[in-house]
Design a protein around this nucleic acid. Structure first.
Length: 299
RNA sequence: GCGUCGGUGGCGGAGUGGUCAAUCGCAACAGACUGUAAAUCUGUCGCCUUUUCAGGCUACGUAGGUUCGAAUCCUACCCGACGCA
């Protein structure tokens, strides 16, 4: 029996993935699952480029606004919730369209990826803070030798999380199965040449500022009590706008830094997606529907 | 006009006679990633020779000079900032 079908719309930031997903959904009775690590948070709207209710065109969207921005919604949470949503959608005989720029999130549901439930242990993290990165690595080598072979020994944040996972679950991270797909997936990617993408990024940033993005961040801090540290960690618009609000950088510096940072982010996204050879890259998004019909007709 | 300080690689900014193609930061480029992923981390980064080991070339405002040897010292000139007129 064939695994159920699912469509993935991926690509760098500012390429119009959300719009395309809605168009596809309209054409084939689909529902959209957002795979965006920031749009899961309530209140991160303008800065995260969350789709507006009117833009949804009646298409059901999943995994938007499911978390409090003061808490961390990890890939574990996403995987769990997305898999539930997908099975619901299939149950309704609709086609799930997973759409987003967070490569890890997308892959965590489309491929087998065993993730033991390891919550965050702040006391434990605090305890590790003063330990040198080198020592953290040695410690991991003792506790979970297999993991220590695959981890980046310089990456402090990952070392801490790896140790935390063992601390919390008592289990070693299982070896990664080699990209075993869970579904029959059509991967569609939207891309632009560098120059065009840079222009789109800048344009969209300006539009967001006009829409009141600075105010959004201000409210997140003042009304929703999202700490400056947390905003900084949320990255990009939340990081640089909050730095501006804290007076540590000028408005112009904020805009300039954002253009650069978003560009760099888009490059990192592409580095991730390049590994997936199954992605059908569309230089012209209007070609998508034909690919989708062809995919659905296949049995 | 006189004086002082300064002009370094795409940018910022170290270096003040040899070990300097030149610390470092940024940008740029490439990459990693099974767990904060818009985060975090790594590599490359004057030009040329087949990547490397290596070798060659051109460079520290311009032109000369001193020296075995200069980004570093001297002279002149150009440019900038400040001070005095």
């Amino acid at each position: 029996m064939m695994p159920p079908k699912i469509i993935a719309v991926v690509g760098q930031t500012a390429t119009g993935k959300s719009d395309l997903a809605v168009q596809i959904a309209l054409a084939i009775a689909g529902e959209v699952i957002s795979a965006d690590s920031r749009q899961v948070y309530r209140g991160l709207d303008i800065g995260s480029g969350k789709i507006l209710p009117t833009e949804m065109a009646g298409i059901r969207h999943h995994l938007l606004d499911v978390a409090d921005p003061r808490t961390v919604y990890s890939v574990f949470d996403f995987q769990r919730d997305a898999l539930v949503a997908i099975s619901d959608i299939h149950q309704r005989n609709h086609i799930p369209i997973i759409c987003g720029g967070t490569g890890l999130f997308v892959d965590s549901v489309l491929f087998e990826m065993p993730l033991p439930n390891a919550s965050i242990n702040y006391a434990f993290r605090h305890q590790l803070e003063s330990i040198s990165t080198e020592t953290l690595f040695e410690r991991l080598s003792r506790v979970d030798p297999r993991r220590s072979h695959t981890i980046d020994r310089h990456n402090r944040r990952r070392l801490i999380r790896a140790l935390e996972i063992i601390e919390e679950t008592g289990i070693h991270v299982p070896a990664t199965p080699q990209r075993t797909p869970r579904f029959d997936t059509l991967f569609l990617g939207i891309r632009f040449d560098d120059e065009t993408l840079r222009a789109r990024i800048r344009q969209r940033l300006m539009a967001r500022l006009d829409l009141g993005m600075v105010d959004e961040v201000y409210k997140l801090h003042e009304i929703d009590h999202v700490s400056w540290e947390r905003l900084d960690d949320l990255g990009l618009e939340y990081r640089f706008v909050s730095r501006y609000l804290r007076d540590s950088i000028s408005y112009d510096a904020m805009v300039a830094s954002l253009c650069t940072a978003i560009w760099q982010y888009s490059k990192r996204q592409m580095t991730w997606f390049k590994r997936n050879k199954d992605i059908v890259w569309l230089d012209d998004p209007s070609l998508a529907l034909a690919r989708v019909q062809e995919f659905l007709a296949r049995s």
